[in-house]
Design a protein around this nucleic acid. Structure first.
Length: 560
RNA sequence: GUGCCUGUAGCUCAACCGGAUAGAGCGUCGGACUACGAAUCCGAAGGCUGGGGGUUCAAGUCCCUCCAGGCACGCCA
């Protein structure tokens, strides 16, 4: 990557200057950044080394800059170096570097942009994990798109990633779910029942009730709505039905999961939660008060202490959550990433506190909070309450706007900002959605290659050695080559900061350069060598768009 | 009341962990198809980065303080 090359050359130049006596000996590391300036006049890259090291060198930044410039100017990598502004070193890279990089890109192909910042570290990425009490809605879709993209991104960046869905199939909500279905079932059997507040009243409950009727006939027609055994039967049926739907929806949204972890089977039935609580007792991390067991979370960064076992003897959800994360670590994962709805943000300090208390490193868990989606229709805010049954499901959304458009839409915003998803705009102006803009660039290039083949040129049959990339010397061509090189940095940045939206922005920018170029120049010209070179450039662009879209889980069509 | 997130062009959002003159898309206005796909391109207008203070060579970015919106504050899950 070019930034690293510049960095290394700068370090060498400083060493050389110190040896020459032009710069004084100094203690410590060279601290600086190689950044890309906003303005072209400031070069391709800039370093602030002369300013950040001004104290160490005991020298005005401009003077340091001139010394380093004199040394580095001999290097053919740079076509020009300026000392500018308060002391920036502005580097202008020779065209030949960019032109040469295109061949690297093409030979890397689908692997172009891969890096190894993950160094094979095992990561467990948990995402969606919506309660199995109803179908996934639009809000879950955002978490799903972000989570799955992070999965692809981290794999691309060298992490060993597994994904998991945590099924909250224990606790009070299961009773409520079972009861909701039971009442609808009794209704369907002809008994007139009132439907109490607080239960799940969506239409999908009625569908499950009909299914129950298919299976059991009127076997439970005389059941009381307080019969816990019957409620359990109905809740298990409901969870299975709902979970099947969730799995199908996620698959249809291109989201892959390696494991579906049942809270009930994995933590409760095995007694693992109790083991964890006992362990915490042994370590003196919990105490008894008012008949309940409290974790000393206030000593670990939380506002106050929290109950892990109620006076009734039941474990809290918090206890299950602690146990679950310990379970993940025990399975051998070094890094845990959770993607949560932002409404759970209050849980982050207490869960991290619990893990620290047990002796895990604080940074072994990172929680990515995804803010709510405001769904707008006819300019009106639509509610998304599962309980009230008023929501647009993820499936409906995908059927409406398409998988690619929905995913891309979710991935154009930073996850911690509120997102307005205006159905009217996405539906009506579907063709102006940025995803089409990027996909169109891909399809257009595929079309160019098809045209070229009709004229007897198959770019894949031509050896890269036969292509003279120095013919790509127009300003727009160099700019595109630079953008292609920057893909690597984009991937690294997006992966290390867990910010997949940067890839969407990058792709939109690259597509924009391509479209602009396309309208101004021709790939197929009368000059054979020039045509080859430009087709090679086109091939590079198409490859990067394809690689980028593939990380977003969006298709790269050859025609549309 | 306490804590967390957010506040950037008319709207939706960027800005590479502090860099130089804050950028895109949509929308508005005006242009470009007898040549590789007009789902495209070119141009114009649009800003005291919510207000005020501070930190330093340098602040949309860090600190303090107000203002506004969202969310969370249970022996619920």
């Amino acid at each position: 990557m070019i930034q690293k090359i510049i960095h290394n050359k700068l370090i060498e130049a400083i060493d050389k200057a110190v040896q020459n006596g032009d710069l004084p000996h100094f203690e410590g590391e060279v601290i600086h950044q190689v950044s890309t300036p906003r303005h072209e006049a400031h070069g391709d890259y800039a370093s602030n080394v002369a300013m950040s090291m001004a104290k160490a060198f005991k020298m005005p930044p401009k003077k340091t800059g001139e010394i380093l410039k004199a040394i580095l100017s001999e290097d053919p990598l740079f076509s020009r170096i300026d000392v500018a502004g308060p002391g920036f070193l502005n580097f202008f890279i020779s065209d030949s570097y960019w032109q040469g990089h295109l061949k690297t890109l093409i030979s890397d192909g689908d692997n172009y942009g891969r890096c190894d910042i993950g160094r094979g570290i095992s990561v467990l990425l948990e995402y969606v994990s919506a309660n199995p009490t109803g179908p996934l809605h639009v809000g879950h879709g955002r978490g799903a798109a972000i989570g799955d993209t992070i999965r692809r991104l981290l794999k691309f960046a060298g992490f060993d990633v597994k994904t998991e869905y945590y099924i909250n199939d224990a606790g009070n909500q299961m009773k409520m779910l079972g009861k909701s279905v039971l009442i609808r079932y009794l209704n369907a059997c002809g008994r007139s029942m009132t439907f109490p507040d607080g239960l799940y009243r969506g239409d999908y409950i009625k569908d499950i009730a009909l299914k129950a009727q298919d299976i059991y006939g009127d076997k439970f027609i005389d059941s009381s709505t307080d019969d816990s055994e019957v409620i359990t039967i109905f809740s298990e049926l409901a969870v299975n039905e709902i979970l099947e739907g969730i799995k199908a929806d996620l698959k249809g949204f291109n989201c892959a999961f390696d494991n579906w972890f049942s809270e009930k089977k994995g933590l409760h039935d095995t007694g693992f939660i109790n083991e964890v609580i006992e362990d915490m007792q042994k370590r003196g991390l919990v105490y008894e008060k008012d008949g309940a067991l409290w974790f000393r979370s206030s000593e670990w960064g939380d506002e106050k202490d929290r109950v892990v076992r109620r006076s009734t003897g039941e474990n809290t959800y918090f206890a299950a959550d602690i146990a679950y994360h310990i379970h993940k670590i025990k399975r051998g994962y070094r890094l845990l990433i959770d993607i949560w709805g932002a409404d759970h943000h209050g849980y982050v300090p207490r869960l991290k506190g619990a893990l620290s208390a047990i002796g895990l490193k604080a940074d072994s868990l990172s929680v990515l909070l995804v803010q709510f989606v405001n769904l707008l229709e006819d300019g009106q805010l639509k509610g998304m309450s599962t309980r009230a049954g008023e929501f647009i499901t993820l499936k409906e959304l995908i059927d409406d706007v398409g998988r690619d458009a929905a995913r891309f839409m979710f991935l154009t915003k930073r996850s911690d900002t509120h997102l307005d998803f205006d159905l009217d705009i996405v539906k009506k102006q579907g063709q102006e959605n940025p995803v089409y803009y990027v996909q169109y660039a891909h399809a257009r290039l595929s079309s160019v290659f098809k045209k070229a083949r009709e004229r007897g040129i198959n770019i894949d049959d031509i050896s890269p050695d036969a292509i003279d990339c120095s013919l790509l010397s127009k300003g727009e061509e160099i700019d595109i080559l630079k953008a292609l090189e920057a893909f690597q940095k984009t991937i690294e940045g997006a992966a290390s900061n867990l910010e997949p939206h940067n890839i969407s922005y990058y792709l939109t920018d690259l597509a924009s350069r391509l479209h602009s170029y396309y309208n101004k120049y021709r790939f197929l010209t009368d000059d054979k060598d020039l045509s080859f070179a430009r087709l090679f450039l086109a091939k590079g662009v198409r490859q990067v768009i394809k690689n980028g879209l593939s990380i977003l889980g969006v298709s790269a069509p050859d025609n549309m």
